[in-house]
Amino acid sequence: MSPRRVVSPEEVFFRGVWRENPVLIQLLGLCPALAVTNTVANSLAMGLATFFVLVGSSTLVATFKRFIPREVRISAYILVIATFVTIADLVLNAVVPEIHRALGAFIALIVVNCMILGRQEAFASKQPVGRAILDAAGTGLGFIVALLMMGGLREVLGYGSFLGVPLFGPSFEPWIVMILPAGGFFALGFILLLFGWWAERKKEPVRPRRWPHGVTTEVFVGEGGAD
């Protein structure tokens, strides 16, 4: 019934990075991807925090999956995830307070990132620890890549800088919308357009058929007709 095949460890890792990228392909975890990616630094901090939570939770869930009863598994996953989120929240606040302030409530909201719970339920709870870590690291890296793409686009257009370093002269005209929350949607639109174009390019172009698309047939009409 269910298709079974061998998945190599490399594939477990890399599919999350690119082919099944959580944000760009699966469109999961969009809330932080849209909300806090207005600068590269914010994107990186959010990406790293999520990476840490994801890898930590997957490791624990895969390790203790035998001891977690089926009936309460979601509660247990949430408990594990929430613990890691709180730790990430405290550490960010202590180490990089400015970025913590900029990210605001979105650090705490990592706990409801469906991508993380999804990896626990779909992968970590069914797989050996090593593979679960690989999967979580790949997905987490894919999340970081996506956030950096969005953060880069938004910071370059919105502030004219990259990681705070001005790229253009003083006459640069900032795209104000890119810093605002709405800019997240536009940046995601840009990136999805490029991805769609990339995917389409590899396919054979479909030639539209011209109307009428019927068949031509020859009918022999004898003298005296049918009637």
Partner: peptide, 11 residues
Amino acid sequence: MDVHRFELTAS
């Protein structure tokens, strides 16, 4: 005998 060409198409 005449030969008529018809094009058969869907509506």
